[in-house]
Design a protein around this nucleic acid. Structure first.
Lengths: 214, 214
DNA sequence: AGCAACGCTATTGTATACAAAGTGCGCCGG
DNA sequence: CCGGCGCACTTTGTATACAATAGCGTTGCT
């Protein structure tokens, strides 16, 4: 995406996720344009995107407000993500190329390394974890699925989940990735699906155990 | 959505679905603006939406083309729809209100009536069928799920499927709706999920049996 | 005093003009 | 003749001005 539009998107999303724009707060295009330092045009595009991703909701007539994500909505998000990403894993199992499989192995090796030291490198973990899932989704080779998952996987949520993980849980996460790689190598769709389901749902419960949202 | 923007959306979508804009054809904002009789601004919004729904794809650098939906893509669409809509049915089973249940009964009664005569009223069938599924999805009470399904259920596809149904199959469709209502009344999520899965997958195979796309 | 209608204002929708960026073609050089 | 460079043109991105519309307050009438 282009520069101003992308910036507006990131900026507004940041306002929402940081809580500066609390749930229910009205969002006017002009005010946001001022804040972002761009004109209304890219702001409008950013808002459309945020609306599609349900960060903002459109009221009775076309006025936008910050959506409130209660715990129920988060639970549904994780459920949908588990369902779809497990399906992606199943597809990937029978489609993945040797090169992608190797990339996953390398990725997970870096994850293991990141959490090996006395002080886990959470930043690296997150970055590599993201790559791992992206490679998997790409291997599933389904644009629709990829689009849907992109709207579903919120990195701030992932980050908070990882922040909640202790060393043991981080290691278990890496272990699950390893098992997923095995399932892919065996081209066992059901196995891959099951492992991914557990992987995401465990993340959900780790997340839920964390302090309430905001 | 507003008037010009909505019109542009419908117009462009029509061009794509009718085949006037064949898969792979480049789409320029200005040309579309001329065709639709509006300016580029609403056309851009329409294109964003169509892009999110994967009617059009954005090439290497920001140029738009008509996406081609091969049979593989259609299969994946049906698979995703079956998965998500079955999940919606499962949620609906434990959440549906008596009023919504009654609305479903009335809806299905109208469907049954529409296919009762010597010449099935396919238009009514389609309209009521759409209502039936919309009520179900609304009863699931999950905005995210609703958004995703909206992007997945293409009415032209549904229409073609129904056009392929003979009287027996139309009746079977209504019967499946009836069973779904029973599952809802019993608040049996698993049952509802299974019935919906079968309902969609049968539609998929009826669709696949039809002549190739375009 | 309450209700309704009017008009003002705030906000979104659309058009257009301009800026930037990428593509393709042609020209020049090897 | 082929390849690379550069310029022109096409296309998209952004800003701004104007139009339409919905909310809301105020004022006047009952």
């Amino acid at each position: 995406m282009s520069k101003a539009s992308e910036r507006a998107y990131a900026e507004i999303r940041g306002l929402i996720l940081s809580g500066d724009a609390p749930p229910g707060a009205p969002l006017t295009e002009e005010a946001l344009a001022d804040i972002c330092g761009v004109s209304r045009t890219p702001v409008r595009e950013a808002l459309r995107r945020l609306e599609a991703e349900l960060y903002v909701v459109r009221s009775d007539s076309q006025r936008l407000f910050v959506a409130d994500w209660n715990s129920e909505a988060l639970a549904e998000m994780f459920t949908l993500r588990a369902m779809l990403e497990a399906h992606a894993a199943a597809r990937a199992a029978t489609r993945i190329t040797p090169a992608a499989l190797e990339a996953l192995r390398a990725c997970n090796a870096r994850i293991t390394a990141a959490i090996a030291g006395p002080e886990p490198d959470v930043a690296s973990f997150l970055s590599e974890n993201r790559s791992f899932h992206e490679i998997t989704i790409a291997a599933a080779d389904s644009p629709r699925l990829a689009t849907m998952l992109a709207a579903l996987v919120e990195q701030p949520v992932v980050r908070r989940t990882a922040a909640r993980y202790n060393r043991t849980e981080l290691a278990r996460s890496a272990h699950e990735h390893g098992e997923l790689i095995q399932a892919f190598a065996a081209q066992d769709a059901q196995w891959a699906q099951a492992v991914m389901t557990g992987h995401i749902r465990r993340a959900f419960h780790a997340f839920s155990a964390a302090e309430p949202v905001q």
